[in-house]
């Protein structure tokens, strides 16, 4: 009887989790390359939440940053906007173009921490 109850509770919990998962928006697995007019590479793999957990990144504004007068604001973030909203296709006085912004952000940290991919084909993976 105890066994049966426990199984029921677990099943109910799983059902709730599944419903939550299905209800929330589809999980991000790669950085979309659609802001680029004619993408030449497969989109870079990036399982958003799993990546940040594994890499131990707490602050959202490590990537979703906000600048004011050339300085990065410590306690503001911009996850409601896409990188392409602020980064045009080419460099603009001190603000890297979109491709460069992604590469500096992603590779920059991987190089600095000596963890994470730095080769083209490790991120732009063909399936």
């Amino acid at each position: 009887m105890r066994r049966l109850a426990a199984t029921g509770v677990i099943a109910a919990a799983l059902a709730v989790l599944w419903a939550l998962g299905a209800g929330s928006q589809e999980e991000m697995k790669a950085v979309s390359s659609d802001p680029f007019p004619r993408p030449q590479r497969p989109p870079a793999v990036f399982a958003h939440d799993a990546h940040n957990e594994k890499a131990g990144i707490e602050a959202c504004n490590e990537c979703h940053h906000v600048y004011e007068g050339g300085r990065r604001l410590e306690d503001e973030s911009s996850e409601d906007r896409r990188c392409a909203d602020c980064h045009g296709l080419s460099d603009e006085n001190g603000r890297p173009g979109l491709r460069k912004a992604f590469h500096r952000n992603c590779q920059g940290c991987h190089l600095e921490r000596r963890r994470g991919p730095i080769l083209c084909g490790e991120c732009h993976r063909r399936r």
């Binding site: 080769l119 083209c120 084909g121 490790e122 993976r125 063909r126």
Partner: peptide, 13 residues
């Protein structure tokens, strides 16, 4: 080979 990611992409890069 590295472009098409045949074999091991890290080795061939």
């Amino acid at each position: 080979i590295a472009y098409y990611q045949w074999f091991d992409v890290r080795l061939f890069t």
